[in-house]
Design a protein around this nucleic acid. Structure first.
Length: 434
DNA sequence: TCTGGGGTCCTAGGACCC
DNA sequence: TCTGGGGTCCTAGGACCC
């Protein structure tokens, strides 16, 4: 029985390059004194720990843990704490990725701190030496330490990468090794840590006595397909060394959806404040899609209370609005958002979050204008261009609509920002020549 | 007091049609 | 008027990732 089409039986050589404690490494790059301390970076709103230095991991700070729960540890061990600075991390990420691109044209930018490289067709004599060299060059050129795992499939290269990190080797490869060597690593690898196995699948596998990656590799195909989905089976095949998760090589891949949402700094009850936050998110999303030259035909607006708040019943509601014409016009979009919010707002709740999702984005260039569309569309286009240009030059939200308000009493907490800005001269390091 | 945000993909189930 | 099977398309919700 064959569920999955196998395109190419030739064994591949796939490297996964992953930046170590990426956000922490970025902060340390501009402030080397931090190398002497445990460091953590917090999520938006200073909510959870999302990046930890090696030392922070060692004293027992867990990934994703709420900040207020680790404050004791932070104090005790003098941990340096930072609010996230995505502009900085994005910039450093681009430096790392453009360095990697020199090494293989077949590269998939998988996330802000990870990339897959297809090395199959390169003439590499000694793979081990090659990836060690690669690691050294990235550190030298960008200042960011990385780990590299190499194997014949993406899933196995993820395993190799974990092993490299855990053993503090920096690199680990499964290419050219015999089956027993790989199996030995898989036996020590908890099934819940396998790429593609989340909380639910882990629960299912544990219940069926599938404890590690080796157990999963040897599962019966029919059982896996019946009890999970096609992804589940692809993962199993990949553990066997059969590549079935393709590379996405599209470099300027455009997003299909665009979501902007934030938790509030403190809970919000009034419609007015919800409105101000929502419109502000809507304007940010609109600016994002204009930057990508995309337009949107349908939007979802949502409001919700905190699932952790025991003082009230959890409440969450959303509304989808289909626009008469696809657009990137901030004014049209905020009008639609407001309309949706009015329909879903229920007074009496302490809200934690609101947001907007632009769904099914399409390319503005391919869009044919409609006979019934507003004749003022050209004017609207130049207005949006003028707003975007001004905001780019003088800072975000210099020009905005009155609906976003002036009180800003919904804004998130950001008490530990390093405020590093790579486009500012102020942050250039000073070198003393003696 | 304080628990992130932004994506992608899959599936089940409903609506609709022949 | 009632009944059945099978196909397609759409959508909401869930699972997963970093």
């Amino acid at each position: 029985m064959s569920y999955i089409k196998l395109r190419n039986t030739k064994k591949k050589i796939i490297a996964l390059v992953d930046c170590n404690s990426f956000y922490v490494s970025c902060e340390r790059l501009f402030n080397p004194i931090l190398n002497r301390f445990p460091v953590v970076v917090l999520s938006n709103n200073d909510g959870c720990v999302i990046s930890r230095s090696k030392e922070a991991k060692e004293i027992g700070i867990r990934m994703g843990e709420p900040y207020f729960k680790v404050k004791e540890l932070v104090k005790k061990y003098n941990v340096k704490v930072f609010s996230s600075n995505y502009a900085l991390y994005g910039d450093i990420s681009r430096r790392v990725m453009s360095t990697l691109k020199r090494f293989s044209p077949n590269i998939e930018f998988y996330s802000i701190d990870e990339a897959f490289l297809d090395l199959t067709d390169l003439a590499i004599e000694d793979i081990n030496q090659y990836i060690r060299e690669l690691r050294k060059i990235i550190l030298k050129w960008t200042g960011i330490p990385v780990s590299i795992g190499v194997a014949s499939t993406k899933t196995l290269s993820k395993v190799a990468n974990h092993v490299a990190k855990k053993k503090l080797l920096g690199t680990q490869h499964f290419i050219g090794e015999n089956e027993e060597y790989i199996d030995c690593a898989l036996k020590k690898f908890p099934v819940g840590d396998v790429w593609g196995v989340g909380r639910q699948l882990n629960k299912l596998y544990q219940k069926n006595n599938i404890k590690n990656a080796f157990d999963l590799k040897n599962c019966d195909n029919t059982w896996v397909r019946k009890n999970t989905n096609v992804f589940g089976l692809k993962t199993v095949m990949e553990l066997r060394g059969i590549s079935c998760i393709d590379f996405d090589l599209e470099e300027d891949r455009k997003r299909k959806n665009c979501c902007v949402s934030r938790s509030f700094g403190k809970k919000v009850k009034e419609f007015e404040t919800l409105k101000e936050a929502l419109i502000s998110h809507c304007l940010n999303a609109a600016e994002k899609i204009r930057l990508d030259r995309q337009i949107v035909k349908s939007i979802v607006v949502f409001i919700k209370t905190s699932p952790f708040d025991k003082s009230q019943k959890y409440f969450s509601r959303s509304k989808t609005i289909d626009l008469p014409f696809a657009t990137d016009n901030s004014l049209e979009l905020s009008k639609a958002c407001l309309n949706a919010l009015e329909k879903i707002f229920v007074p009496g709740y302490k809200y934690q979050k609101t947001g907007v999702i632009f769904c099914g984005l399409s390319d503005k260039n391919n869009y044919k204008t409609n006979l019934f569309e507003n004749k003022n569309i050209m004017h609207a286009n130049s207005l949006m261009k003028a707003i975007d240009k001004t905001n780019f030059r003088f800072g975000r939200n210099v020009i905005t609509t009155a609906d976003t308000g002036f009180r800003n009493n919904w804004k998130m907490r950001r008490n530990h920002s390093s405020r590093i800005d790579t486009s500012s001269f102020e942050f250039l390091p000073t070198i003393k020549a003696i």
